[in-house]
Each structure stands twice: as structure tokens, then as C-alpha cells.
Design a protein around this nucleic acid. Structure first.
Lengths: 342, 342
DNA sequence: CGCGCGGTCCGAATCGTTTCATTCGGATCG
DNA sequence: CGATCCGAATGAAACGATTCGGACCGCGCG
């Protein structure tokens, strides 16, 4: 029908309703100050013209901006989308909207989106940086865009940040295994250049020391290059071949743990699988759906997003560094002699 | 430092560079028409003031809009984010950006975001509708916003759509199982009110007939209410109790298949697990990481998103309905006597 | 010498909304 | 009855960029 008819504007509405543009604006934004009769007329005109106000003009004039941007490392990673979801929920309370983009760990893409969002005039940004160089973020903050760095490899004191206490996570897992009576534990970790990995290792050591033991005697750390199921499977196989069956294995993430379980079953069937205690990290959705439900360290993704969003919309501009505590979710994989599965 | 300094505008830049605002705009948009010397001056001023142009004002005046919105059912579902990713990649080619939002299957949220995006003046929308009522979408399209309906339960001829041929998917799975020599198959499906479920059932029947058999004799359809692992596990248990061990099971999605596998192993160990052929749907990431890697029907998510984005940005406005063909990914779960797992 | 012309640059008009100082009509009050 | 006051409506200014008709300049050509 309407091939390319210009969208109706407040002027059109005003004309049709027989009032001034200011009045239209008022019924839109402060309905209480306009008399019911005129309000009705205006509403009717809006209805008739299918008027939808132009957000760009609105924000241009009003200066207000009601969207915040987020740049994640990978939009397909559940960890990040869960965080985004938490942020979105919090933002919705204040009528903000969230625009998502993923950098794919590519600094160029990160830059591009950063600029795009800034041009768009977002209120603030929520970013998981691709690299250690936070300069551009700081510059943008100086230009008036609120910033929160998420889960960052290293963070500047001038930038708000939200992260998880990896050391506590490592300690939680190791402490749990020690309390189950295990006297040695294998830690399948990633390279220490990744801050998270180093932190978790430190936590493991701390827990061991707190149990009155010597980390050097208790912990066998194996560094993986690929942190997925294949990597876990392979590493576990090597351990079985070289040093025999371990009593307990702590994995840097759940996928690695899945690989470990797969290897154990292949080699020794259900019997071996239930004999070795396994703990993962991240508590991904399927952790509870595995043949042997996996004990895992859960990061409070939703709360992280929520907290980050909170920093973005709150009135004061104080810089704050929020650190969340992870939580241990105990399932069958780390509990000895689980009846139903023997 | 700069507590709340107003962002620099073209006027500021022009003043500093000693040129007119129009010239600044020209170096920004058509650098070739401005003399190198002045161009340099302007660029220097831009640099010095950290000028970032105001996208809202730009788009207000220029009328151009370079973002498209997407409303997904659930931002945490990999199927949707994969589709979004495909769209994003395609859009990037034309310098469009994608704004994501999730409706959570809540029509009210869908409405809210629809309006928000329209106010924002998006070029087009990509939406997975929450319900069968596509009226609001059509209205929005009439108001000049390009629309593509994704994976819709029922679609109007006036709206572009991108979907997957569910009948073909069902036929693919059933055909595969029949060709493996199975003479009866259990189909764990969802309610036929969901178009996808009904379509897949039709496909199963077609494949059976094409094999010269009678669907009524061959197919045992079991309708689940919850389409997840728990639902699959429970249904499988009931089948084992009531009618014994089936030869082949086709599941409406991978999570259901995971539940089926879990049940089989619990009841009859690895032996039973490898004796029953299982086929899933969606080919989720972990399908290949399971104890017995799962055969599954893969939907071309990335291509779907890409195609949808293409409809959004292409020059002509012809309505088009794109239907993709799914693909079967064969793994151990549906192949008899897999050596390594016995 | 006058004219036309291409290459540059200028700056007012414009987009659609909100804001806000102002106007207007009527009611209240001394 | 005139002075005040108040709620309601008005309409021009402003937001910051793009656009575009026009001015200006130097130069080649008739």
C-alpha cells in the first residue's frame, strides 16, 4: 500500500489533532500535565497516523541515551551470553536496552564496534577485552562513555571491573577433593599466561597448604594447550599410561572434564569412571546431564552481568572493582561409591 | 580530568581548523572533493579534539540507518545465537550492525523490543516470533521497516521468511535408520501444535513409505511434553518397561537423545547403549563429545542467518520464502557394532 | 578583456523531537 | 471590579550532522 510514505512526525500529529507540537510532546512524555480532552484528541491522531516517535531525534535533542553496548569475546559461548542475560535483566529495570556484539577475540573487530557504539551514543559499554591494552577503553571513558571491564586479563584502576575470584575457585575445588580424603590430585590446567589459569593454580596451592600439606607433594599440574574435551581425553590417557590411575582430577573447565570422563570409561569402564573423582569448572548446562553428573565450580554469570549493568546505570561515577565468589556444585563425579551407578 | 565536557561537535572542529562545518562534513564523507591541504588541517583538528561524530544526528538528517535488530526467543540457546552469528557476518559486509534482544518467548517482551527498535529507526528486523500472531510485524513492515521472519510457526505470504525444511529433516533421519536395517522405529516427538514437530513427523512417514513400508506398522510415535534430557530419559524408561528394547530411536532434539542414552546405559550398560540406534536433531556442540557420539540432523544455522540478513539488505523488496535443507551427520550412535566401544 | 568553467569552500536550511519562556483564558480573591 | 494566580497550550530555539545552491578564485580561451 503505502509504498514509501514518510513516517508520520509530531507535526503531522499536531496538525491532525489541531494542537501545537509541544502539546503532542507533552502527551507523549508527561501526560499528566495535559487536559484529558486534548489528550484524547492527540492519542486518537497518533493512533490514526500510526505515529511512532523517532528515537534518534528524541535522543539527539534530549541528550538522554537509553542503550548500553556490550562487546563479548564470543557470542556463542554460554558463559558470555549468560552474563549478557544478567546485564539485560538489570538494565531492563531502568528501561535501558542492551546491544550485543562479539569481537571474536579480534582486536580490530573490537575497535570497530567500540567506535560504532560510541557514534551511536551509547550510555555505557560493557566489554570483555581481547587483549591487555585497555588504552582505547580508557580514552573512551574520558570522552564520557561509562565503562565496565568484564572478566579482564588485567585491569586498570581507573576502569570499573567485574570479575570472579579464580583463586577462590581453585581453592574450592581442591579443598573439596581433599576433604573427600584424596591425598594427591591431578590438576589439568591451561597456560599460566592466562590470568584465570594462574589464579586457579594459586587457589589450589592455598587449599593444600591450609590442609597442612605440601603442594609439591600433593599437586600434579599438567598444562594443556587445547582446553576442550579432546585435550582432556588425551591428557588423561597420557597420565594413565605414565603414572597410573589418579585418585582425583581437577579440570580447568567442564569440557576438559568431559574428555577425562570419556577416557576413563574407555579404558576402565564404569568401574574406573566411578573410582576417580573428577571436578570441572564453569558448571555448563550439560554438566548435570552427563552419564556421571559432574561436580563443578560455578561462576555467578547472571549476577556478574547484573552487577556490571548496575555499575553502568548507577548515579555516581565512583570506580569500583567487583569480585565475585564462585560456588561449588557437588554432583556424583566427585563423591565416592555412588550406589546407583556401580 | 574532563569531568563532563561536552563531546566535540563538527562546529568545534570547524572552528579549530578554520573552515566551515560543511567542509568538515565533506572530509568525513567525501574526502576526495576537499583539497589535501585543508583535509590535513581538518584531520588534525579531529585528532586533537578526539572528535567522534554523533551517529544519532547523522542518521536523523541523512535518513540512512545502518543497524538491524533481531529478536530471538532465547539468547542462551546456541541455535539462535548461531543464526545471529550468521546474520552478523553477512551484515558486516554492508557495514550494518546487529542489535540483539531476546523475547524469552514472552509476547509482551517481544512487543516492547519491537517498538524500541522501531523508535530507534532500525533498517530492518529479524524476528523469531513468540506466537502465531504476525499482525504487529506486518504493521511494522507497512510502516517501512524491513522484516524477515525466522523459523516461524506459521508465516504470512506478505512477510519474508527463512526456515528449515523439517519434513526433509525427519525423512533424513528415518531414511538413515531404515537403511541401517531397522524395521521399526520409535519417534520421540513433541506436540504437533509445534509446526516443526508436525513437519518432522510427516517426513518420517514419507521416508517409510518411500522404503515401501507402512508407517502404521513401522513408526511408534511417543509425544513428550518436556523436550529435554529428563523428558527423554523418562520416555525411554517407559518404553523399555512397556514394550521392551527398541531397535532404533529418533529424537526431536539432541537433549532428548542425551536423556535416552542416559536411560539406556543405566538400564543395560554399554552393551544396551550400543545396541540401540539413536538419532538426534540440531547437532548441538556436545553431540560429538558424548560417550557415544550422537548422529544428528544439522540445521544450517549460519547460512540461515546469512540468508535472512541478505533479504534485509538487498536492494529489491520482493517477498521471498527461503527454505533450507537440513543435513545428516552420522556418528557412532546410529551405526551398529561400533568396535571401540563394546 | 570578458566569459565560462572546474575545483573548493561556505553557510543556511533541514531532519524530528524536546524544552522552556511566553501567552491565554478563566477562576479566585480582596 | 481590578489584580493575581494557575493550569493549559503555544511555538520558537536547540540538538549535531548532512545537504546543496551559491560564492569565490584562478585560468584557459575566444
Amino acid at each position: 500500500m503505502s509504498t514509501r510514505a514518510r513516517r508520520a512526525s509530531v507535526v503531522d500529529v499536531a496538525k491532525l489533532a489541531g494542537v501545537a507540537v509541544g502539546t503532542v510532546s507533552n502527551v507523549l512524555n508527561r501526560p499528566e500535565v495535559v487536559a484529558p480532552a486534548t489528550r484524547e484528541k492527540v492519542m486518537a491522531a497518533i493512533e490514526e497516523l500510526h505515529f511512532v516517535r523517532n528515537g534518534r531525534a528524541r535522543e539527539l535533542r534530549a541528550g538522554r541515551i537509553s542503550t548500553v553496548g556490550a562487546i563479548l569475546l564470543d557470542i556463542r559461548n554460554p558463559f558470555f551470553t549468560d552474563v549478557a542475560r544478567g546485564a539485560e535483566d538489570r538494565l531492563a529495570q531502568d528501561d535501558y536496552t542492551l546491544m550485543l556484539a562479539s569481537s571474536d577475540d579480534d582486536p580490530a573487530r573490537e575497535q570497530k564496534y567500540l567506535r560504532l557504539f560510541e557514534e551511536h551514543g551509547v550510555h555505557g559499554m560493557l566489554v570483555v577485552p581481547t587483549g591487555p591494552d585497555l588504552g582505547p577503553l580508557l580514552a573512551m571513558q574520558d570522552r564520557g562513555v561509562r565503562m565496565v571491564v568484564l572478566d579482564a586479563p588485567s585491569s586498570l584502576p581507573e576502569l570499573c571491573s567485574v570479575a570472579v575470584d579464580d583463586e577462590a575457585g581453585g581453592a574450592l575445588a581442591a579443598g573439596h577433593l581433599l576433604s573427600q580424603g584424596h591425598e594427591r590430585l591431578v590438576f589439568l590446567n591451561g597456560p599460566h599466561t592466562i590470568r584465570q589459569c594462574a589464579g586457579r593454580r594459586a587457589g589450589v596451592d592455598r587449599a593444600v597448604r591450609e590442609a597442612g600439606l605440601d603442594p609439591e607433594q600433593v599437586v600434579v599440574e599438567v598444562l594443556l594447550s587445547s582446553l576442550d574435551a579432546a585435550g582432556g581425553d588425551e591428557a588423561m590417557q597420557r597420565i594413565l599410561d605414565d603414572t597410573g590411575v589418579p585418585s582425583a582430577v581437577f579440570c580447568v573447565n567442564d569440557l576438559v572434564a568431559v574428555g577425562v570422563q570419556r577416557c576413563l570409561r574407555r579404558v576402565g569402564g564404569a568401574e574406573l569412571l566411578t573410582r576417580v573423582a573428577v571436578v570441572g569448572y564453569d558448571d555448563i548446562d550439560i554438566a548435570s546431564e552427563l552419564a556421571v553428573p559432574l561436580t563443578s565450580v560455578r561462576q555467578p554469570t547472571h549476577e556478574m552481568g547484573s552487577a556490571a549493568a548496575d555499575l553502568l546505570v548507577r548515579a555516581d561515577l565512583t570506580v569500583e572493582h567487583v569480585v565475585f565468589q564462585p560456588e561449588l556444585v557437588v554432583r556424583a563425579s566427585s563423591v565416592a561409591h555412588r550406589g546407583g551407578l556401580a
